[in-house]
Nucleic acid binder design. Structure first.
Length: 701
DNA sequence: GAGTTTGAAACT
DNA sequence: CAGTTTCAAACTC
């Protein structure tokens, strides 16, 4: 019967491996099926295996709910990485392997939502000690693989330190080491264990190692291993620990790290054990946030890993039998989240942010701002993240102003359910984090056009949306994807942020001559305003908080952040000759906004009578630590209006130069290559260099 | 809350 | 490619 279970689960996983057919619901169903099955009940009664609350597969835009997917923008490189990883992991858990032919009845499907007590398992398995010898290095090697792959992905995206190739080589090295250990492990199993039990345990680890809270004696034995993979892993871990210690020390005012470390030594060790992976995964998680939404298709494979292994409630307790909390589950999720990177332009931009961040700060990207779904900083790595944030390095997200401004309302604030769209809007405009409360109000577009802010932002509509006949929901995934694809075919940058802006705070931190960066350099394209004078939020430039540039075709531009003609934003200096009250108000707003922004770092309350454009809401003091990464409301960027006009534009947005993306701008808005990029510093160059990672839509079709 | 204005997006 | 229509947000009253 147990063998059948293994077979069954394998078959199911193979099905799940088919992207088109692997869905969250299937995962949920499979988990539920297992838990509801008599077999599960039987196991539950006979063994220390305990059910764990299944992970809820919600329909919200929870990044953990949606696997990343190879959307049309998915990077081939990453895809290959993911693929190789997938295959490797799959083979490791291949039931056809000798250990899977075990007659032992204690086989447990990796996909099952169970908690397994390691000690109990060992007791039931007289060869556990032998298994310890063979398995530990394997586990470590798995970690090495996970980490190295994560590193590869991260480095690939970040573009700093190691090149993608180098990182990949690291990953390959790790894989080689892993294979070596795997071979040894197999031999050991064959020699010592033969066909006896406990081998499904190996498969469990193979499939779920990244999820395990694993600090059993085996893991400790792992630390004693001398295999190169383990050594590699250890060195990396130590390095990161050092950084974390540094971060914790630097965050002394927030409480020392020790205070925030778990009281349970085991837990603490486990945390450290998992730190490297988690830290990277933190970054990736944040990055994933935005694009997860439409990534269903590509997420299937990931679902197989994430859903069946990582996101499954499968847990291993440590030797003390301490059940790991859900929190730990989240922490233990590995950095393989990189698979979720770069699914779409938004993601790429997230990656850009990260690139910019790492390249400018010269620091390894460790940790990220915590997600709203994640616990507040209570661990050393969280402290480190906080440190980074407080150091002004909180701006992976800050680059994504437009994304922020749009997305911030869609993901994080699901607790607001105003009675009417306008109330909702008003409420969002009045609330402290009001900007994050926006929801769409579409009536005719079915939320399948760029008119819909949710759709345009790459997120599903959520309940608080007041849209009518909305199709922008997970249940209409195929429609959404098809529509999105269609739109992207028309304009590959349709879902790109309308305004790209680097982080002022970062610039300040790194000493960038911020004033030398024209606001227009961040334009995706210019506005086309006729009547608003670019002084109202009708104007995308104004709304985005950047000045107009020659890319704009606006008439009578009075953009407070920089006029098209390149003149300084006179509105900011009070010399605007307003033609009417409206424009005057706008100018006042702009002044207020400017004041608010320039004092942002000191006083994060906007003194303006009206709320500034939502993209510029000064962050609350707590936002940096509580806001959730890219998709979920990045702390409003610390910014200043850019007073210089100009016509610089990122390469990739310009659609020229080395970018594979040709922006066929609707309305034929000029999307021209920058005439000069002299103002771009090295960090920005790195950002641009990473753009070619975005495969054009055409290349994927 | 209803109605108007606006400009992006979509369409022809 | 230019003109027109549609659309939903922004805005006003």
């Amino acid at each position: 019967m147990m063998g059948e279970r293994c077979e069954s689960s394998r078959g199911e996983r193979e099905v799940m491996g088919t992207p088109e057919r692997s869905k969250n619901s299937q995962i949920a169903n499979s988990i539920a099926k297992f838990e509801d099955s008599p077999v599960f009940s039987f196991l539950n009664n006979l063994s220390p295996i305990k059910p764990v609350k299944p992970v809820h597969i919600s329909q919200t835009i929870n990044p953990l709910s949606f696997a990343s997917l190879p959307s049309v923008f998915s990077s081939p490189h990453l895809a290959s990485l993911r693929e190789s990883r997938f295959l490797r992991r799959h083979s490791l858990s291949d039931p056809s392997k000798p250990e899977f032919s075990s007659n032992d009845g204690n086989k447990v499907d990796p996909n099952m939502g169970v908690t397994m007590n390691l000690d109990e398992h060992k007791e039931s398995n007289p060869d556990a000690n032998c298994e310890k010898a063979s398995e530990s290095p394997y586990v470590c090697s798995k970690l090495v693989v996970e980490f190295a792959e994560t590193l590869s992905c991260e480095m690939d995206i970040v573009g700093s330190g190691l090149s993608g190739l180098e990182a990949k080589q690291v990953a390959e090295y790790a894989c080689t080491s892993s294979a070596f250990v795997e071979d040894q492990r197999s031999e050991a199993n064959a020699e010592v264990l033969g066909n006896t039990g406990g081998n499904c345990w190996d498969s469990l680890i193979a499939d779920s190692s990244d999820l395990f809270i694993f600090e059993s004696p085996k893991a400790k034995a792992c630390n004693e291993s001398v295999d190169p993979a383990t050594a590699f892993y250890r060195s990396i871990r130590n390095a990161i620990q050092n950084v974390q210690s540094f971060g914790a020390a630097a965050c002394g005012e927030r409480g020392n790290a020790a205070e925030n470390m778990p009281s349970q030594p085991e837990e603490g060790i486990g945390m450290i054990e998992n730190m490297p992976l988690q830290n990277f995964s933190g970054v990736s998680r944040g990055m994933k946030r935005r694009s997860l939404v439409f990534e269903m298709a590509g997420g299937h494979r990931k679902n197989m890993e994430d859903g069946s292994a990582r996101d499954s409630p499968l847990l291993l307790t440590n030797s003390d039998g301490n059940a790991s909390s859900d929190k730990q589950i989240a922490r233990t999720k590995t950095g393989s989240d990189c698979s979720g990177l770069l699914p779409g332009i938004g993601l790429h931009l997230n990656a850009l942010a990260a690139t910019h961040e790492s390249s400018t700060s010269g620091r390894l990207l460790i940790g990220s701002s915590s997600s709203a779904h994640f616990p507040p900083p209570t661990t050393s790595q969280d402290l480190l993240s906080s440190y980074l944030l407080e150091s002004g390095v909180d701006t992976f997200e800050s680059l994504l102003l437009e994304d922020h401004s749009r997305e911030s309302g869609y993901i994080a604030n699901e607790d607001i359910n105003p009675s009417s769209p306008k109330k909702r809007r008003r409420k969002s405009e009045q609330g402290g984090d009001g900007e994050s409360c926006k929801r769409c109000n579409c009536k005719k577009s079915k939320c399948l056009k760029l008119y819909c802010e949710c759709f345009a932002a790459g997120v599903y509509c959520v309940e608080p949306c007041a849209c009518i006949d909305c199709f922008n929901k997970p249940v209409h995934e195929e429609t959404v994807l098809a529509t999105r694809k269609q739109i992207e075919s028309r304009n590959p940058l349709a879902f790109a942020p309308k305004v790209i802006r680097t982080s002022d705070s970062v610039s300040e931190i790194i000493g960038d001559d911020f004033a030398n960066t024209p606001a227009s350099a961040r334009h995706k394209r210019g506005c086309n305003c006729k009547k608003s004078g670019c002084l109202k939020k009708y104007c995308e430039c104004y709304q985005g908080g950047v000045g107009c540039s020659i890319n704009c075709r606006c008439e009578g531009c009075k953009n407070a952040f920089g006029r098209k003609d390149g003149s300084c934003a006179s509105a900011l200096h009070g010399d605007v000759e307003d033609e009417n009250d409206t424009t005057e108000k706008a100018a006042l707003d702009s002044r207020s906004l400017y004041k608010a922004c320039i004092h942002d770092d000191l006083d994060q309350s906007a003194p303006s009578k009206k709320r500034p454009p939502r993209a510029y809401v000064p962050p609350t003091s707590s936002s940096s630590s509580s806001y959730s990464g890219f998709g979920a409301f990045p702390p409003p960027p610390k910014w200043r209006p850019h007073l210089e006009g100009g016509d610089e534009m990122p390469h990739f947005l310009a659609g020229g130069g080395g970018s594979p993306i040709k922006a066929s701008s609707p309305n034929r808005k000029r999307v021209t290559p920058p005439q000069t990029l002299t103002g771009l510093r090295s960090s920005r160059k790195l950002v641009l260099q990473s753009i070619p990672l975005f495969p054009s839509l055409a290349s994927n079709q």
